[in-house]
Write a protein that binds this DNA or RNA. Structure first.
Lengths: 138, 138
DNA sequence: AATAAGAATGAGAAGCTTTTTCATTTATAT
DNA sequence: ATATAAATGAAAAAGCTTCTCATTCTTATT
């Protein structure tokens, strides 16, 4: 039950928060802009304001439920935290996002951090490019 | 002479472009927001509009003279390309930025792009951590 | 169940960074 | 010197995100 997640995060169980959590967990996609979430809410007949969507997503981020990615496409993208780390490859034309994981790169990052004297806390690797579909329609 | 760089890039040699290039090359800092550049121009007594700063920086980016970084701070940061591509390791405490380059990672990124069907245009790898100084003063 | 207190929400305004518009100015080739 | 196409400045607009504030809802307490 999602309401437990909300309670654990110290958030009251309200309709907007439950609905947004449902969408994020629905699994249709994994990466949502605030606008994406807002549209899905409208389609589902829920009259929830965009401001609330942003507020709730920010709260979810603070609570560690979602991660916010700052892609170069100009808007933020939110993603449920499912515990499995991965990096992103983003289409600069259509905004499509794919995921990948490369163990070699992961290891190298730790080595690099050590060499530089840093205690690594996080990292993000974004590859930008033109996806297959967008290459066709050039 | 900077004007040669501009000509090579197919850009007319205009006062705004020369002045902005000078600032970027001044070496006081390596990372500038558009606002940073704009302020330095004002301090230098140059009446150059912010719109022009953005335009010129974007042109410089297209021309390969500068690289644009989308940090999580909400605005873009520009940096002169000195021919040496590198990635960034950022201290989450003090904001210190170090640079590094790892050829293996570079190669792997290209391979990953191909596998995913993308034509890679760019990438950015940020490692976040606590730098040596900040680890001491914990 | 009813109530009180505080938190959450919606709608719109506002804030920021960045881009666009358009009349005017400027660089460059002739 | 002149024509022409590009560049510029100022202001408006765009796009994403946050803030304000009156209203509504959740939750703990009667």
């Amino acid at each position: 039950m999602e309401s437990q997640d909300l309670r654990k995060a110290g958030l009251k169980v309200t309709l907007p928060r439950v609905k947004i959590l449902e969408i994020l967990e629905s699994g249709k996609t994994r990466h949502f802009s605030a606008e994406d979430v807002y549209k899905q809410l409208l389609e589902a007949g829920e009259e929830i304001g965009l401001a609330t969507v942003y507020r709730v997503l920010t709260q979810f981020e603070t609570a560690g439920l979602v991660t916010r990615h700052h892609f170069d496409t100009g808007h933020s993208v939110f993603e449920m935290n499912l515990g499995n780390h991965h990096d992103h490859i983003v289409c600069v034309r259509c905004g499509r996002v794919d995921e990948f994981i490369d163990e070699t790169i992961e290891k190298l990052q730790h080595e690099i951090s050590e060499k530089a004297g840093y205690k690594m806390t996080d990292h993000c690797l974004y590859i930008y490019g033109v996806c297959q579909d967008c290459q066709k329609s050039e």
